[in-house]
Simulated assay, not measured.
Amino acid sequence: MSDIVTAAMIVIGDEILSGRTKDRNIGHLADMMTAVGIDLKEVRIVPDEEDEIAAAVNALRHRYDYVFTTGGIGPTHDDITADSVAKAFGVPCDYDAKAMALLSESYARRGIEFNDARKRMARMPVGATHIDNPVSAAPGFRIGNVHVMAGVPSIFQAMLDNVVPTLRTGAKLLSATVPCPHGEGIIGGPLAEIQKAHPDTIIGSYPKYLDGTFRTDLVVRARTQEALDAARKAVEEMVAALPPAA
């Protein structure tokens, strides 16, 4: 379908993989993409290693409409995302004149030395364009269909707010929830048959344990109201035909 737009995310950082930092950006991106009708199809978490980052960028940018990265664009030696993305695109990574001027003015205004470490935040692949950062001035960047943003959640969210209006969006997924008083073991078979009969929908089952019994929320998703209503009716009829819960 021409109105389906896809995206992937690369979360970069040894601190995520070690557990020292708990990621808060995946859920936010997923919420934002769903809201505008873009399907977030894949998320990869990679270490601070140039070859690993470049390989992930190249694998995903050719497969999906958009790629978003978070992390690794700060002032320290292990902030190598800009170099890695440049390597993936086969272009040099250099100091960007506009970013240098922006950061120089920002640090001067605050009376902070614009040292070599801080200047690293002005480096980006040649040919990249800025993603504005209203929180701390240091910009992210976009090159091709890859959007490179900070890992700090407040900065990532602010950058993403600037990116979303520039994206091509698709048909939004509609959804409906049918509560079921049984666990997945009882409904698995008939639910699979309903999914097979309604291939233009996505049907998910989400079990929960309440008051000593297993129950399941059955969520139907579709891009048209007609498809949603048809599949939801089939699920409701299936639930109604089940024996009463114990």
Rank of each mutant, 00 (worst) to 15 (best):
M121S: 12
S2H: 12
I155K: 02
A137V: 12
Y209T: 05
E237T: 07
M149R: 02
A234F: 03
R142H: 14
L167Q: 02
P199T: 11
A101P: 00
E184F: 01
G212S: 08
V163T: 01
E236W: 01
N133G: 09
G111Y: 07
A54M: 10
A241P: 01
T70F: 02
D39W: 05
G151H: 09
S84E: 08
H77L: 10
V91N: 03
D96W: 09
F68V: 04
I187F: 02
A86M: 05
G185Y: 03
V67P: 07
G204R: 13
P165R: 05
Q157E: 04
R24C: 01
M238T: 04
L191P: 07
V164G: 00
V163L: 03
T81I: 06
L40C: 07
D65L: 03
T177N: 06
V46I: 05
T6S: 15
P125F: 10
I194F: 02
A192Y: 00
K119V: 12
L210S: 13
R142S: 12
G151T: 08
I10S: 07
T81H: 11
D78R: 02
L191K: 06
E113T: 15
E42H: 15
A101E: 14
E52R: 15
P207L: 05
R118F: 12
G13F: 04
G212V: 09
E193S: 11
T129F: 00
R168N: 14
A35K: 13
A30I: 05
A56S: 15
N58K: 14
T169H: 12
V36Y: 08
I202T: 14
D39N: 11
L174S: 07
A54V: 08
H198N: 15
L17F: 03
A8N: 11
I53V: 13
K87S: 09
P190E: 04
I45K: 08
L40N: 02
D39A: 13
A86G: 05
S136R: 14
P243Q: 12
T69M: 06
D211C: 00
A30W: 06
V178M: 05
A246F: 06
F214R: 01
P244N: 12
P92F: 09
K233M: 09
T6P: 09
A138F: 06
V5Y: 14
F114P: 06
D14E: 13
S84V: 02
A128I: 04
M1H: 13
K87E: 09
E193G: 00
S2W: 06
D132Y: 00
M1V: 10
I186Q: 11
R63D: 08
I73K: 03
Q157F: 00
K41L: 13
A54L: 10
A246I: 09
E113D: 15
F89K: 01
H62D: 13
G13P: 02
N145S: 04
A59W: 07
A241C: 03
Y209N: 10
L191D: 06
I10W: 06
C93G: 05
V126C: 06
V46H: 01
G188N: 08
V220D: 02
A122S: 14
A35H: 11
L102V: 00
F114K: 12
I186V: 15
R61D: 09
A117H: 14
D200K: 15
V164Y: 01
Y66P: 11
L102A: 07
V163F: 01
R123Q: 15
R168V: 15
R215P: 00
L218M: 07
D200G: 12
I12Y: 11
I38R: 07
A245C: 10
D217M: 00
N133W: 09
T129N: 05
D3N: 14
R142G: 03
